[in-house]
Amino acid sequence: MQLIVTAIGKAYASVQAVDKVSFHINSGDIFALLGPNGAGKSSIIRMLVGMTRPDSGSILVSYQSQHFDHVPRRLLGYLPEDRGLYPDKSIEKNLLYLAQLHGLSKSQALTEMAVWLDVFDLTERRHDELKQLSKGNQQKVQLIAAVLHKPALVILDEPFSGLDPINQEKVVQFLRELKARGMTVILSAHQMAMVEKLADHMLLMARGRVVLAGTLEQIRAQSQSQRQLKVAFSQPVSMAQLAALSSISRAEQVSQQHWLLSLSEPHSVSQCLQQLLALGELTQVEMQTADLHQLYLTAMAKHQPQPKPEVTA
């Protein structure tokens, strides 16, 4: 399966929800759509699913020499942003109904269901009505419903929302299992730590536009995040001493002997170390790399709308 999205746009009333967004996803990848609320993630997902059509641009889904303008239902496992099941029915009845709608026989559905219920520790509760479950457990049932029929592509809109950290880890394991089974996964999320562990490629969006795209390394490169060094001196040094160094643009004292230093362009790490050694003996040197959370916040800060200047009389 391959999915190529080329310059798609979508407007609702006066709001441009998606603006010339392009990306491609290869078979077996985990692809993450990231961005704050209103960034356009769900609008993209609805176009991929075929619920809405792009106003401009194109979507091309290729599967076994066949081509489609959205993901065909038979290939799709979907967890929508607005989701729910039948609260007055048991887990088993809910899952059986959706699996049979996907074309599975009753015995196939029960076999697959047993596997996933075990993964999510829900086997004992299979006959409980959905309304008796916690929100987190209901979320797990919905995740199972999305993959029970072994789809080629799984689209999960906010799969981590409403889950505690332990269950978030379970979802991470679940997504790895999907990848191991050869499924292609598209997910949207806010939980950067989770996405960082999983996603092969990601797309950071703000106000309908692509801000950063690619692998985590590519995004780091694109974001041009500041290089930082965490160092410790054997003897105390002063802020004034560090500020006088040309290779340091910013210094922050973490403890009496520990400092977090931002390197100034175009100095290299070795030039900086030479200048630091001139101040005293170093007992610890650690290169700091910005994680996805920091990259996300930095990128979003750059794309926040500028406040309007205040008008004074």
């Binding site: 699913v49 239902r73 979907y78 967890l79 929508p80 989701r83 729910g84 099941l85 039948y86």
Partner: peptide, 13 residues
């Protein structure tokens, strides 16, 4: 109200 509709749309026409 129970927000099942969108999920069903992804399965059948």
């Amino acid at each position: 109200q129970q927000r099942v509709t969108e999920q069903l749309y992804a399965i059948l026409t």
